[in-house]
Computed example of a mutant assay.
Amino acid sequence: MKERQDGAAWQVVETREIYDNPWIRITEHDVVDPNGNPGLYGVVRVHGLAVGILPVDDGGMTWLVGQQRFPRGYYSWELPEGGGSFDDPQGSAERELLEETGLKAGAWQEFLRMDLSNAITDEQAIGYLAWDLKEGAAQPEACERLELRRVPVRDAVAMALSGEIVDAFSQTMLLKADALARRGALPAGLAQHFI
């Protein structure tokens, strides 16, 4: 574990595996916190990598995916995203984009790495910009019932700012891309669609 600047770190006394399935593993730890207090800490260990894609076409449009989210029981509009492989994150992103939207991209750029809910999980995420798009038929997984919405990327940014898009990964990708565009840090052909 990474140590604080003053050298104090969490100490693990004992670890138990509580649950495991193909997607997650839950471990429980008897710990001593950085201040020397004994405690209990549960961690959700995610078996894969989260990948997300912000596709932008030549007209400045992007695709949002609508779906029912089981954990909190609500309908969510998000950028295309899903589980991926640590060994081939971009290949996983290409697969997710095709599955959820039917899109294939000729150009890709990784632009975001983040930890998701790092107090209770070790889940990591990588976000990609995708452009030079070719449309095809979506190929959702058997358990997915998806709805697609094509909107101007500026409108998607506004949806993230207003809270209409509540998915943290989608919000972060949209707002980071917008900030990078305003700083001149995106390819010119993409940046013009945000500003």
Rank of each mutant, 00 (worst) to 15 (best):
Y19S: 03
Y19M: 13
N21A: 07
N21P: 03
P22S: 04
P22H: 06
P22L: 03
W23L: 13
W23F: 05
I24A: 00
I24H: 02
R25Q: 04
R25M: 15
R25D: 00
I26K: 08
I26T: 03
T27R: 14
E28T: 07
E28M: 05
H29D: 07
H29K: 06
D30M: 05
D30F: 04
D30I: 11
D30A: 14
V31L: 09
V32R: 05
P34I: 01
P34Q: 09
N35F: 14
G36N: 15
G36I: 12
N37V: 14
N37A: 14
P38L: 06
P38F: 13
Y41G: 05
Y41W: 14
G42L: 13
G42C: 09
G42V: 09
G42Y: 11
V43F: 06
V43Q: 12
V43N: 15
V43I: 10
V44L: 10
V44C: 08
R45Y: 13
V46R: 03
V46C: 02
H47G: 02
H47I: 05
H47D: 10
H47A: 14
H47L: 11
G48S: 06
L49N: 11
A50H: 04
V51R: 01
V51E: 00
V51G: 03
V51S: 00
V51W: 06
V51Y: 01
G52Q: 00
G52N: 03
G52C: 01
G52R: 00
I53V: 14
L54I: 10
L54M: 06
P55S: 07
P55C: 12
P55T: 04
V56G: 08
D57C: 11
D57E: 02
D58I: 07
G59C: 05
G59Q: 11
G59D: 13
G60R: 12
G60N: 06
M61F: 12
M61E: 10
M61K: 14
T62E: 07
T62M: 09
T62D: 05
T62L: 02
W63N: 02
L64V: 09
L64Q: 07
V65S: 02
G66K: 04
Q67L: 10
Q67N: 14
Q68V: 08
Q68R: 09
Q68A: 05
Q68S: 08
R69F: 14
F70R: 08
P71V: 05
G73W: 00
Y75N: 15
S76M: 12
W77C: 06
W77I: 07
G83A: 01
G83T: 00
G83V: 02
G84I: 00
G84S: 10
G84D: 01
G84Q: 00
S85M: 04
D87R: 10
D87V: 09
D87K: 15
